[in-house]
Amino acid sequence: KNALMQLNEIKPGLQYTLLSQTGPVHAPLFVMSVEVNGQVFEGSGPTKKKAKLHAAEKALR
């Protein structure tokens, strides 16, 4: 199970927000955030999926 699945089991129905998309078309950088218990966690990556995963990993720490 990855961090997204684990976080969804603990806190179902979380909303992930796209904060920014920067970089060239062939190498974009997405920044996504998720709010858990009033705290906002951000993650970035080359795809929205990876950015969401990194945000979930930070939220689980």
Score class of each variant (00 low, 15 high):
residue 1 K to E: 11
residue 1 K to W: 10
residue 1 K to Q: 13
residue 1 K to A: 09
residue 2 N to T: 12
residue 2 N to I: 01
residue 3 A to K: 12
residue 3 A to F: 15
residue 4 L to D: 06
residue 4 L to N: 05
residue 4 L to F: 15
residue 4 L to Y: 15
residue 5 M to V: 09
residue 6 Q to I: 11
residue 6 Q to K: 15
residue 6 Q to S: 13
residue 6 Q to V: 12
residue 7 L to F: 03
residue 7 L to P: 01
residue 7 L to I: 07
residue 8 N to S: 13
residue 8 N to P: 00
residue 8 N to H: 11
residue 8 N to C: 09
residue 8 N to M: 09
residue 9 E to D: 11
residue 9 E to N: 14
residue 9 E to G: 11
residue 9 E to T: 13
residue 10 I to Q: 08
residue 10 I to D: 05
residue 11 K to F: 15
residue 11 K to C: 14
residue 11 K to E: 12
residue 11 K to G: 07
residue 11 K to T: 09
residue 12 P to F: 04
residue 12 P to C: 04
residue 13 G to R: 10
residue 13 G to S: 06
residue 13 G to Q: 06
residue 14 L to D: 01
residue 14 L to A: 11
residue 14 L to R: 07
residue 14 L to K: 03
residue 14 L to N: 04
residue 14 L to G: 04
residue 14 L to P: 11
residue 15 Q to E: 10
residue 16 Y to F: 12
residue 16 Y to Q: 03
residue 16 Y to P: 04
residue 16 Y to D: 01
residue 17 T to Y: 07
residue 17 T to N: 09
residue 17 T to L: 10
residue 18 L to P: 03
residue 18 L to M: 13
residue 18 L to A: 05
residue 18 L to R: 04
residue 18 L to K: 05
residue 20 S to D: 06
residue 20 S to H: 08
residue 20 S to C: 08
residue 20 S to Q: 12
residue 20 S to E: 11
residue 21 Q to I: 10
residue 21 Q to W: 08
residue 21 Q to F: 07
residue 21 Q to E: 12
residue 22 T to N: 10
residue 23 G to I: 00
residue 23 G to S: 06
residue 23 G to C: 05
residue 24 P to I: 05
residue 24 P to M: 06
residue 24 P to S: 11
residue 24 P to N: 09
residue 24 P to R: 07
residue 25 V to T: 14
residue 25 V to K: 15
residue 25 V to W: 08
residue 26 H to W: 07
residue 26 H to C: 11
residue 26 H to L: 05
residue 26 H to F: 05
residue 26 H to N: 15
residue 26 H to S: 12
residue 26 H to I: 08
residue 27 A to S: 12
residue 27 A to L: 06
residue 27 A to I: 04
residue 28 P to A: 06
residue 28 P to F: 02
residue 28 P to N: 05
residue 29 L to Q: 14
residue 29 L to C: 12
residue 30 F to V: 08
residue 30 F to N: 04
residue 30 F to H: 06
residue 30 F to E: 02
residue 30 F to T: 05
residue 31 V to Y: 09
residue 31 V to C: 13
residue 31 V to A: 06
residue 32 M to L: 04
residue 32 M to H: 03
residue 32 M to R: 02
residue 33 S to H: 09
residue 33 S to G: 14
residue 33 S to T: 14
residue 33 S to R: 14
residue 34 V to K: 00
residue 35 E to Y: 03
residue 35 E to L: 07
residue 36 V to N: 03
residue 36 V to K: 00
residue 36 V to W: 06
residue 36 V to H: 06
residue 36 V to P: 01
residue 37 N to F: 11
residue 37 N to H: 08
residue 38 G to H: 06
residue 38 G to D: 10
residue 38 G to S: 05
residue 38 G to N: 07
residue 39 Q to W: 09
residue 40 V to Y: 10
residue 40 V to I: 13
residue 41 F to C: 05
residue 42 E to T: 12
residue 42 E to V: 09
residue 43 G to L: 00
residue 43 G to R: 00
residue 44 S to C: 11
residue 45 G to K: 01
residue 46 P to I: 08
residue 46 P to F: 09
residue 46 P to K: 13
residue 47 T to N: 08
residue 47 T to E: 03
residue 47 T to M: 01
residue 48 K to P: 06
residue 48 K to C: 08
residue 49 K to T: 13
residue 50 K to D: 11
residue 50 K to P: 01
residue 50 K to W: 07
residue 50 K to C: 14
residue 51 A to T: 00
residue 51 A to N: 02
residue 51 A to H: 01
residue 51 A to D: 02
residue 51 A to C: 01
residue 52 K to P: 00
residue 52 K to L: 04
residue 52 K to Y: 01
residue 52 K to N: 02
residue 52 K to V: 04
residue 53 L to P: 00
residue 54 H to W: 05
residue 54 H to D: 14
residue 54 H to T: 08
residue 54 H to E: 14
residue 55 A to Q: 00
residue 55 A to I: 01
residue 55 A to E: 00
residue 55 A to Y: 01
residue 55 A to K: 00
residue 55 A to F: 02
residue 56 A to I: 02
residue 56 A to H: 00
residue 56 A to G: 02
residue 56 A to T: 02
residue 57 E to L: 07
residue 58 K to P: 02
residue 58 K to D: 11
residue 59 A to P: 00
residue 59 A to H: 02
residue 59 A to N: 00
residue 59 A to Q: 00
residue 59 A to E: 00
residue 59 A to I: 06
residue 60 L to S: 02
residue 61 R to A: 14
residue 61 R to N: 14
residue 61 R to V: 15
